[in-house]
């Protein structure tokens, strides 16, 4: 799945990352009915509501757009989720963003290497807290392949667009994979075999996040606003 159409080294500025996550948040909020449907089938139906609460609170902060480092954008989103969502999703999606930048030096531009490093930390952070592995029918089933795709993209020196495209496709395949799985966590766990055929809501949100990042960066490229170094 390597895609070497973009071999230059692209970067996103702090402001672009801020706007990218505003776009991501809007897309996740738009997906609330879809997420509710998915979660009603095998969970308790509140995942879409929770994600909406989390991103709405995050967007209120991001709309001021006055950060001087990318670390603060991730941290702000993470804190908004942990502080407002509740449920398992609040802690886990909050940890996704917070642990991504935890202990990182000041990040003033986002290239593929940094993006890959952030999400590698995110994966470790979420797994440390939630204890789920690939195959447990959770957000990890989409996040882990997306993180692997970013790492490979970085090793193959792909540009941002191609890297995010690969990550987004990997996450989508991960969501598809959750359909054949029995759940090991959350309320779907008690449904046993009955969850087979249904995709996981958390994994779906991860896929929407990566797809939205991809779309945002593609749009920048089309407009000629994607910077190279």
């Amino acid at each position: 799945m390597t895609n070497k159409t973009n071999s230059t080294s692209n970067i996103l500025t702090v402001e672009q990352v801020n706007n990218m996550f505003i776009y991501v948040g809007e897309k996740v909020i738009e997906s609330k009915p879809l997420l509710t449907d998915i979660d009603c089938a095998i969970g308790d139906g509140d995942h879409g509501i929770g994600m909406e609460v989390g991103f709405k609170n995050a967007l209120e902060k991001l709309e001021a757009n006055n950060y001087d480092k990318i670390n603060d954008i991730f941290a702000e989103i993470g804190k908004a989720m942990i502080g407002n969502m509740g449920g398992a999703s609040g802690v886990l999606f909050g940890t996704l963003f917070l642990s991504g930048v935890k202990g990182q030096e000041k990040i003033e531009q986002l290239d593929v290497a940094t993006l890959s490093a952030i999400f590698q930390n995110s994966l470790l952070g979420v797994q440390a807290r939630g204890k789920a592995e690939v195959g447990d029918k959770t957000m990890i089933d989409a996040l882990s392949p997306a993180v692997n795709a970013l790492r490979e993209a970085n090793e193959n020196k792909l540009g941002l667009v191609a890297s995010l495209r690969n990550a987004s496709e990997a996450a989508k395949r991960g969501v598809e994979d959750t359909k054949v799985l029995v759940a090991k966590f959350g309320r779907a766990k008690s449904l046993g075999e009955r969850v087979i055929g249904h995709q996981d809501a958390g994994a779906t949100t991860i896929s929407i996040i990566f797809e939205s990042m991809q779309n945002y960066v593609e749009e920048l490229e089309k407009k000629g606003e994607l910077l190279n170094v």
């Binding site: 308790d44 509140d46 969502m85 509740g86 449920g87 609040g90």
Partner: peptide, 12 residues
């Protein structure tokens, strides 16, 4: 006190 059927936040 959490939202309906959702655990309360760590802040709460």
């Amino acid at each position: 006190v959490g939202n309906v059927f959702a655990a309360p936040t760590p802040n709460t």
